[in-house]
Design a protein around this nucleic acid. Structure first.
Length: 125
DNA sequence: CCGGTGACTCTAT
DNA sequence: TATAGAGCCACCG
C-alpha cells in the first residue's frame, strides 16, 4: 500500500524495456509480408527510417532463427531479388523450396518477376 | 568506451 | 557488363 500502485503507468523511465530493438522491428515488418510476396533488405531498412542500415536488417535475420512467431526470412532478398541468405538456412535448398511453396518462381537463385512480387512496406503500409 | 562484424547498397573504373 | 572499393548502421564482447 505504501508503495505505488501495481498499475504504475509511468515508471519514470527507470526501467526501459529494451525488448523492442531494431531487430524486433525488422521481424515485425517481415512477418507482415503477405504470402506470395517478397521484399528487400533496403526497403525494410528504409521503412524503419534508416535507409542505409540494410546490412543491419540482414543481421537481424540472422537472429530471427528460432523466434516466435517465426520470421519468414525466405521472403527477404537483396535488391537484385537474389537469394543471398539462402546459405544461412538449414539447407541451401530450403529457401527456394519455401518460396516455390508460395507460388514464387525461382531461377538461378533469383526470384522471377521480382519487381512484380516486390512488396514495399513504405508503399503498402 | 572502442573495435570488429555483417543475409546490403551505391558509385567508380 | 563486370569487378572492386567504400559507406553506413546496429549489435556484441
Amino acid at each position: 500500500m505504501s508503495k505505488k500502485k501495481p498499475s504504475d503507468p509511468k515508471p519514470t523511465g527507470t526501467k526501459p524495456e529494451h525488448t523492442y530493438s531494431f531487430f524486433e522491428n525488422v521481424w515485425a515488418v517481415v512477418r507482415l509480408i503477405p504470402r506470395g510476396r517478397v521484399t528487400s533488405y533496403g526497403a525494410i531498412a528504409r521503412y524503419l527510417g534508416s535507409g542505409k542500415s540494410a546490412r543491419t536488417v540482414g543481421y537481424a535475420m540472422n537472429a530471427a532463427h528460432g523466434q516466435s512467431p517465426p520470421v519468414p526470412a525466405h521472403r527477404v532478398l537483396n535488391r537484385n531479388g537474389m537469394l543471398t541468405g539462402k546459405h544461412h538456412f538449414p539447407g541451401a535448398e530450403v529457401m527456394q523450396y519455401l518460396l516455390e511453396k508460395e507460388k514464387i518462381k525461382v531461377a538461378n537463385d533469383t526470384v522471377v518477376d521480382f519487381k512484380r512480387l516486390f512488396w514495399d512496406p513504405a508503399t503498402e503500409l
